[in-house]
């Protein structure tokens, strides 16, 4: 494992910590898209189907369990917690799941590395992860007064895939035969979706003003 991969994973992990912190500290999930959280949970469930059948390392297994556990915990907080669930911006979080899930499912059926159920579902999770942030970005644009933790959460999520791109470049040059077109192209698309957000995030940070996305 190289430094970019480790940094990417740690940033990803940190994004969960920041999100749980925001929800718990403020007892509010205002500005957080439940749709994006549900899509991420679906992504992890589909990707980690091999959790118990394919052992790579203690690190991998632990991280997978943490990602799955945290995702379900966030869903519980947003949908089941008495105090928190009433703060959910239901009327604003209107993105349709099917616009994302259906094209990703079709693409996974058409473009994959092997025609096996496991491989197709895994590929679907890669495609879905690339676009799962869209409901959150739309909600962010509609939210006035984005709080710092929410802004930081989205920034960390974007940074994580960016660091993975560096990891793939590193692996390409250090490991023979390391070619992963599906993962690379999806990861690049995923990172590009954040560029606009990054621009405004960094601008607000440099000018020391509150983050606001133009609508």
């Amino acid at each position: 494992m190289n430094i970019f991969r480790l940094a990417g994973d740690m940033v990803h992990l940190l994004s969960f910590v920041v999100l749980v912190l925001k929800i718990n500290a403020t007892k509010s999930c205002r500005g957080i898209s439940l749709k994006t959280q549900e899509l991420y949970t679906l992504v992890f469930v589909c990707r980690y189907l091999d959790l118990f059948s394919n052992f790579i390392s203690m690190y991998n297994t632990t991280m997978k369990i943490v990602f799955l556990g945290t995702s379900f915990a966030i869903l519980y907080l947003m949908r089941g917690h008495k105090v928190i669930k009433v703060t959910y911006d239901r009327e604003q979080d209107t993105f349709r799941y099917l616009f994302l899930v259906l094209p990703c499912a079709l693409l996974a059926l058409l473009i994959h590395n092997a025609w096996t159920p496991f491989e197709v579902v895994w590929t679907f999770s890669i495609y879905l992860e690339a676009v799962a942030i869209l409901p959150q970005l739309v909600l962010l644009q509609r939210t006035q007064n984005i709080d710092n933790l929410t802004g930081n959460y989205v920034f960390l999520l974007g940074l994580y895939r960016g660091l993975y791109i560096l990891n793939w470049i590193y692996r390409y040059f250090t490991e023979p035969h390391y070619i992963q077109w599906i993962v690379w192209i999806s990861g690049i698309v995923q990172t590009i979706l954040y560029l606009d957000f990054f621009y405004y995030y960094i601008k607000s940070w440099k000018n020391n003003v509150k983050l606001a996305l133009p609508s």
Binding site: I56, S57, K64, N113, E119, I126, I179, Q180, V183
Partner: peptide, 10 residues
């Protein structure tokens, strides 16, 4: 070699 994808990543 375009083999199975990198299942060693998260």
């Amino acid at each position: 070699l375009v083999g199975l994808n990198a299942k060693d990543e998260l």
